[in-house]
Nucleic acid binder design. Sequence first.
DNA 1: GTGAAAGCGCTAACAC
DNA 2: GTGTTAGCGCTTTCAC
Lengths: 377, 377
Amino acid sequence: MPATIRDVARASGVHISTVSRTFSAPHLVNPETRSRVLACADDLGYRPNRAARALITGRTHNIGLIIADIANPFFPPLIKAAESQARQRDYHVFVADTNEDPAAEEELVHALAKQVDGVLLCSPRMSNSLIEQLSREVPLVVINRQVAGLPAVVMDVGQGARLAIDHLLGLGHRDIALLSGPRGSWTSREIRRAAAAAVRAGGGDLTVLGPNLPTETGGTALAEQVRRCGATAVLAYNDLMAIGLMEGLHDLGLRVPGDVSVVGIDDITLSRLTRPKLTTVATPTAAAGRTAVDMLLQHDSPAATRNLRGGGRSSAGDDRRTTAQVMLQTELVIRDSTGPGPRAGRTDGAAGVEHPGPHCPAGPGSPAVATGEVVAS
Amino acid sequence: MPATIRDVARASGVHISTVSRTFSAPHLVNPETRSRVLACADDLGYRPNRAARALITGRTHNIGLIIADIANPFFPPLIKAAESQARQRDYHVFVADTNEDPAAEEELVHALAKQVDGVLLCSPRMSNSLIEQLSREVPLVVINRQVAGLPAVVMDVGQGARLAIDHLLGLGHRDIALLSGPRGSWTSREIRRAAAAAVRAGGGDLTVLGPNLPTETGGTALAEQVRRCGATAVLAYNDLMAIGLMEGLHDLGLRVPGDVSVVGIDDITLSRLTRPKLTTVATPTAAAGRTAVDMLLQHDSPAATRNLRGGGRSSAGDDRRTTAQVMLQTELVIRDSTGPGPRAGRTDGAAGVEHPGPHCPAGPGSPAVATGEVVAS
DNA sequence: GTGAAAGCGCTAACAC
DNA sequence: GTGTTAGCGCTTTCAC
């Protein structure tokens, strides 16, 4: 039913290749012919079939974005940033949700492989070796995970966890619980590692609870365990769990931060709307989305388009993709869910016990704005 | 780099058409040949190119889902339901976000058109005539809007608004404000129409504020206006705005529901986590997603596959798509953000002033479970 | 049961 | 500046 290039050619009395050129290289066709063709095309409601075009050019101008869980408010800012960045480069983004299911991830990469020029794999739950294998099928950029040999952008959650723990220690907490994230999460491992080290260094005690579903429900379900383990402060894998935990503690009759302090990670919008407002580690999600798109599209510089005209050979040498790994800084945002612990006052190092304000920059001397930093190339 | 059908043919010593059959109609090929081909394919890491296949079969086995704003927690349940329903029918869903921008909607439909077998247009902001025109390019199912001649699934927000207003009236409120939604929203118009009628019937007074951005920020920004207009109860276009409004009122020193009662629409997860918990109109979003997928795929019944074998001609007659419009029921969920108004006690009709419980079914006699109801066909 | 040939809608050399 | 020809990776008659 929809018009094809042949219909337009027939209607405008030119060869199909002229019609083709009218759309893909307009400057190569006589202005008069061009406008005639355009008129006919418009008339017939013709639009080039991108899939057919891709078959021969090898470029779809689409990019895939695979997300563990669209319902997690952590992701939308990343998705939107990726989309707007892609749009600027004349690409479209197709998002797909895996429901935290590793099998669905693999399945989706395969499904997307031939319909996109590359895929952004966000917070994957599958194994490194599988990711590596899939990367041979379609260009991949991994987000929130480091895989040897693959371009990646991660947030420095290790640093974030450290800041959070130091904040807690500084407030006089000694018994700290960590609500870990889902099995297979790189982020969760990094947090755990950093938190353990920081607690040890501060002479405290860390209880790890998990792995868990990174949702409110997951957090709520842990309230009882948190009480039993005797922790006076908790660091959660993400804000959702932290918020769920606060609910659960509330139902148990425990006060936040009176009885237990809670820190989240991500700084989702919601964390500013709870009562008490959540202290959390802000991660630069939008920047991550933008950066990932740029890394995926780095070889497709606007220059390539310019090079098409004239006999100048297009630079074939820069096809080599540099597989950089970018790490984005995080910062601690202190709000109302953290307060003095049992050893408050006895504190001898660390930061002051009083809240420095609603939006305090990370560690001493660290920049207030999260910036990208190339770690390896 | 990736292996093509020709590579597999060469490796297994058969013609490419045999390889093709091995994947698309295995029962037509000799078991021995088949396993040999499969082995070679596996060896080479061959996977059929879905795009190329689509070019000739005309079916991509993908469906597009265009969403106004992924960050709005109203949508994820719908997206997930659509995805799981699609997966069951062996389809993949590509989601795209338009940022509430009508131009982006059109652009995306075009981009998706040839890469999917149909698109689900969710809460479109563009004009009906444009939608109709686009529907000639690719099969469309509209969600949250009724467009003449097009299949659609909508929630009965009119009924929801009526329930909400009656609840408020019953509590003794007379001056009611309506926070309307974004320009171009069908839902917003329906809500307004129904709310106006219900308020009038109840002898109350309705002030309409808007149009607005359907976000927390949008709601917060309206707190001042709500106070000035003297309303003691507010119905918001959605939960996000209602929650934002509660924040704004709180900052103004007004108590909810003490000074003003607030009702939202959607019943997003978040509405159970605010303090006070939000009274709201629950909409069956998951059901909407499932239903929309079913409507889009109705002509592609599993029977079609069965018909392939044998000489039995596939039923060509049922290609005619029935353009049904489905309307899903809504229900009022009474929580803690609504309370007695200035005329409490003087009430003579309607529901009692006391909260009937945390999860009360809609109107008197209406079913507790939202069910689909075909309104036209 | 398998091969040969045509062709889906389009682009990319190459002639003229 | 435009037409010709080949062919992207695959499916689908049609012979055999």
